[in-house]
């Protein structure tokens, strides 16, 4: 079982990203869970969302305290929130950041997991014209977690976007560009 914990701020789409990841993994035939943790809901407040992905039916219904992967949608959460709390040995962190590799390493001092950085904001602005970091982050998670290969993921997402954006097909191209760029843009530092 792969357990993933998303840290974002209200309004940034961390919950949506967790649901999209559940969708993508479901398409590969996996058993999935995607769920948010609801606290006091307000724009900008720290929020958490979760995924469990397995080849067996999943029966556990609790939050995730020892994740395999932590995704940080907003780098300003590192510090105020103990984002790497309980990260499994051999686990990984994926952080949306525009900082240099040295600065990112400094941010996660003492973290034993592999740190992957991606400038999801920049990718999103360039490909979609808006700051929607969850689409590029989704690609980074699929890549880092090894849920599927690049070609399968692109094909899978094309179908998913065609369905999701049936009423506004003009945004499909930008979304596809974003995940293509993100696949290459997520780097181990």
């Amino acid at each position: 079982m792969i357990e993933i914990r998303w840290h974002g701020r209200g309004g940034q789409g961390a919950k949506t990203a967790a649901l999209l990841l559940a969708d993508a993994a479901f398409e590969t035939g996996m058993y999935v869970q995607g769920f948010p943790e609801y606290g006091p809901e307000r724009m900008g407040a720290p929020i958490t969302a979760y995924n469990r992905l397995d080849d067996q039916p999943i029966r556990i219904h609790s939050n995730i305290y020892e994740p395999d992967i932590v995704v940080v949608v907003d780098q300003t959460l590192v510090g105020p929130v103990d984002v790497t709390s309980g990260l499994k040995k051999g686990g990984a962190v994926i952080v949306n950041t525009d900082l240099s590799p040295a600065e990112v390493r400094g941010m996660f001092k003492g973290c034993t997991g592999a740190i992957h950085a991606i400038d999801a904001r920049d990718i999103s602005l360039r490909s979609m014209g808006r700051n929607l970091p969850n689409t590029p982050l989704l690609a980074a998670v699929v890549k880092v977690a090894g849920i599927m290969g690049e070609d399968e993921f692109l094909k899978n997402m094309e179908g998913s976007f065609a369905h999701k954006f049936a009423a506004k097909p003009e945004v499909i191209k930008g979304n596809m560009l974003a995940i293509r760029e993100a696949w290459r843009g997520a780097v181990l530092i």
Partner: peptide, 11 residues
Amino acid sequence: DGFITSHAVEN
């Protein structure tokens, strides 16, 4: 159960 299953996407 509210949120635990009502808002969790599962197979």
